[in-house]
């Protein structure tokens, strides 16, 4: 059973300026007797968060409120300074679509590479099926990614990233493709993906999207949870996909 439990978690984020990044200066200060500690920003303050299987949690807050930091902490990327984290289930952080893509190598090889990174053996069947989803011409498979337009590149990256439904999915912003013809399909894929993951945690400053997708919204400000409320069930919208396409005005992260 998938679950995430954070108990009084604090995270101190060391901010290294030029001096702190220099071994020479560090040694000199040690020799000189004046020992300065690198400045630390407390990025998360006593976070308590219980997420059970089936929940879809939206992290909402302004820039710098600690949304992405909290995601990285849940994923175990940042070591915490205090408190406890317990999670069961395999966590897949997907905090940027373009991560790891190599523009010099072919689209097909990029698919294989990104699959490997996810721990999946890139068999021919798997690669074919991902390529089919992109709806791009077959001859483009062997072209290097740098020859792709940004829309086509997004299709490829989106198709790989969403080909599998992970147990626990951490997203920084809703993944979407701006491409008109592809976006409906992409939105549908995202909805399916979200409905199949046991736990979704998604950070965004688009409250409309969060209310549509999530069952619970956690508001963050300056590294603290300021509210944690379930989303009141709204009557099902007639045509959910239209709304979805409208929301996808936010560009996908990681490609800026």
């Amino acid at each position: 059973m998938a679950s995430i439990s954070l108990e009084n978690v604090t995270l101190d984020y060391p901010v290294f300026d030029l001096n702190d990044k220099s071994l020479k200066r560090r040694l000199l200060t040690v020799v000189g007797g004046q020992r300065e500690k690198a400045s630390v920003i407390r990025a998360l303050h006593g976070i308590d968060l219980e997420i059970k299987a089936g929940e879809r949690v939206g992290l909402y807050g302004p820039n710098g409120s600690g949304k992405t930091t909290l995601l990285r902490t849940i994923a175990g990327i940042f070591p915490i300074s205090g408190g406890h984290i317990n999670s069961t289930g395999h966590i897949t952080p997907l905090l940027g679509l373009a991560i790891g893509a190599n523009k010099e190598i072919s689209a097909e090889d990029n698919i294989r590479l990104l699959l490997r990174v996810d721990g999946i053996k890139p068999t021919a069947d798997v690669v074919d099926s991902i390529w089919d989803f992109t709806e791009l011409k077959d001859k483009m498979r062997r072209l290097p990614l740098r020859t792709f337009s940004s829309g086509m590149l997004m299709r490829v990256l989106f198709s790989v990233s969403t080909a599998f439904s992970p147990e626990i999915l951490l997203l920084d912003e809703w993944l979407s493709v701006v491409d008109k013809t592809f976006s409906k399909k992409a939105e549908q894929r995202m909805e399916d993906l979200v409905s199949r993951t046991k736990i979704l945690v998604i950070a965004s400053h688009n409250i409309n999207m969060l209310e549509r997708v999530c069952t619970r919204i956690v508001c963050l400000d300056e590294g603290r949870i300021i509210s944690d409320e379930p989303v009141v069930a709204k009557p099902k919208v007639e045509e959910p996909l239209e709304a979805a396409v409208h929301d996808s005005a936010i560009t996908s992260p990681g490609l800026s």
Binding site: H90, G119, I120, V126, S129, D132, F164, R189, D192, R196
Partner: peptide, 21 residues
Amino acid sequence: DTISSPIVDDNGFLKVEKSPP
């Protein structure tokens, strides 16, 4: 894209086991 392929399920997701980390 969901024509009954042996490796794709009803939702179009690939049915492949991830190797354990």
